[in-house]
């Protein structure tokens, strides 16, 4: 019984951690969308900022990956 409850908690926690991936998707969308908005306003400056775009996407995505990792840890490692 005790183990079942613990397992239940693990699965619920993993599911909640999965929300983080969706939040990271929103973040990545913000980064890319704002970059596009800025790039359309000043296309000549956009080319030099693609590196910044990728760094921003990577930072936003990394946090989503962290939540995914927590879900995996709850499912398989704890």
């Amino acid at each position: 019984m005790e183990g079942d409850i613990a397992q239940l908690g693990q699965f619920i926690g993993a599911g909640l951690a999965g929300i983080g991936s969706g939040a990271a998707a929103i973040g990545v969308g913000h980064v890319a969308g704002n970059f596009l908005a800025g790039a359309l306003r000043n296309p000549s400056a956009a080319g030099g900022q693609t590196a910044t775009l990728f760094i921003g996407i990577a930072f936003a995505e990394a946090l989503g990956i962290f939540s995914f990792l927590i879900a995996l840890l709850l499912m398989f490692a704890v």
Partner: peptide
């Protein structure tokens, strides 16, 4: 930490 987990986590997540 973030530097390593970003790379490893991304690749692992995609494959999983």
């Amino acid at each position: 930490v973030s530097h390593s987990i970003r790379l490893g986590g991304n690749i692992m997540a995609g494959h999983a």
